[in-house]
Amino acid sequence: MRALYILAKDSLEEALSSRLILVSLVAAAVLLYLGEAVSALAAEEETRALLDLGLGLIELVTLGIAIFGGAVFFLREGETKRADLILSRPIGRARYLLGRFLGLALTAGVSLLLTSALHLALLLFKGWLFTPAYLYALLGIYLKVLIALSMTLGIALWSTSALAAMGFSALLWSLGHFLPEVGELLGRGGTSLVWLKPVLWIPPNLSFLNYRDVMSLAPGFPPVGAWFAYAGAYAGLWLLIAWDRLRLKEF
């Protein structure tokens, strides 16, 4: 456990020192400022538009950090030979992977907290009444980002190309939101496209975690336990794919 903590803390500190979070925070602040101007077009629904725009931005910025971090991290560790020293220690590759995953997850979490603090301050300033649904929306966003991070790690370790990893992760991310629409399109395509349907079983079902899009519709508490179960299982399997590649990787 201690090794996991050490690796995770190291990844977070590296991200903080690289100013990655600072850049994302500045980007989020600028976008929120622009968004505030745009949401004024919604007149009486300004706070709703600001809420939706802000949550969307928080998700995209946090996602960007996760996908970028996941795509370059292990490649950089291998190129700089940092991995040599770490793996020469009595630490297994599974633990190494998990420790780094936790560190990147923490980094994404810090970014999420900082950008949402900015967003919340702006909303409250505009007279929005806080509701716990906001926190559930953030939780849904974070679990989606963890899924994206695990996919990116798996793809990055197999593809050895950061760009390919980011591209494929973004594609799976989009498909994960677009599953009902894609399913409908394939259905309209008749028998010629039916062979593509099994492919739809691989992308994550992100609409299940997309609470920010349905928070006005869903009464009571969201199924947080089911969220954790699904996100944990899905991300865990992608980490297994990542480990399968890492265990054979030569440093």
Binding site: S39, A42, E45, R48, A49, D52, L53, G56, E59, L60, K144, S174, L175, G176, H177, F178, L206, S207, N210, R212, D213
Partner: peptide, 10 residues
């Protein structure tokens, strides 16, 4: 595709 359904409604 970015899961911004409510934003699209806005």
């Amino acid at each position: 595709s970015l899961g911004l359904r409510r934003l699209l409604a806005d």
